[in-house]
Amino acid sequence: MTEKPKFAMYWAASCGGCEIAVLNIHEKILDVDANFDVVFWPVAMDAKYKDVEAMEDGSILLTLFNGGIRNDENEHIAKLLRKKSKILVAFGSCANEGCIPGLANLSDSREIVHTAFNTISTDNPHEIYPMTSYDVPEGEIHIPKILPVLKTLDQVVDVDYYMPGCPPESHQIAAVIDLVVDVLHGKAELPPKGTVIGAGNSTVCDECKRTRNVKTIKSFQRIWGVAPDPSLCLLEQGIPCNGPATRSGCNARCPTAGAQCIGCYGPAEGVADYGARLISAFASVIDAKDPQEIDRILDGLVDPTGQFYRFNLAGSLLKAAVPAWKAESTHEKEKA
């Protein structure tokens, strides 16, 4: 019997939801097992980094990489898996655009460590922090070093395909697995490098069944404060829905269920900056000409930066906020 092609999946800075989403394809997971030899998948099987290091370059056919690049361990494994894999897929929002872990790019990374180890949730009167290296009789041991700015996978290594979503919808994962299996059996061809797979090419609005009229917004509403009309476009009702800038692929799940789209499928095709596109979209429908009136309406959008960059900050044009860049600059100086 010929050897099965090899499959790997890895999680860097992520929540584990992408892994669950893969398992959520139910019996389709058996197709993965039937067609692939799973060689590395920390969440599902025991494997050591040194096993991967020992593999021949390019010997893994398909690697699904989820998670952003938060520390030097993530960076090392991203580079390692790039070298060992023929096809590297940025899998899920974190690897594509930073996602929720990327929101840490709003802050100085030292402040993040401080919050984690020395605030109300942790009683730490002596301000004891983890050390990144420590001498023990057996030698020096290390823990990963946090990077000042979280990066997306393609900011660190070359990526073949992008699969968005937080997490990617299971039916989309199943479709991608079908495609790969067809390719293996010579029944289909791989899409061109750089293609976004497992998602649509238009916007969530395009898939949304809600009725749209001419939008004019006199005030923004928070979703928990109103009972939205079940069939009318949410944005039209003043509920900040990110549908206009978000990539289709989820069948407009959230607006269908009565909640606004928060943008987990990332920027739609042709959108260079997700937040900028939404600023245009929202500002266009605000019904005011007077600067004070405009400001009054905008006060209803409580956290515009969070609203527009919840998933996309690390992948946006500006990538991180000033405090994170400042920390990065000190970090670089210390290294030099």
Binding site: G275, F282, A283, S284, I286, P291, L301, P304, T305
Partner: peptide, 9 residues
Amino acid sequence: RRFHLMKRT
């Protein structure tokens, strides 16, 4: 309007 919202962001 875009300017106001952009500035806040």
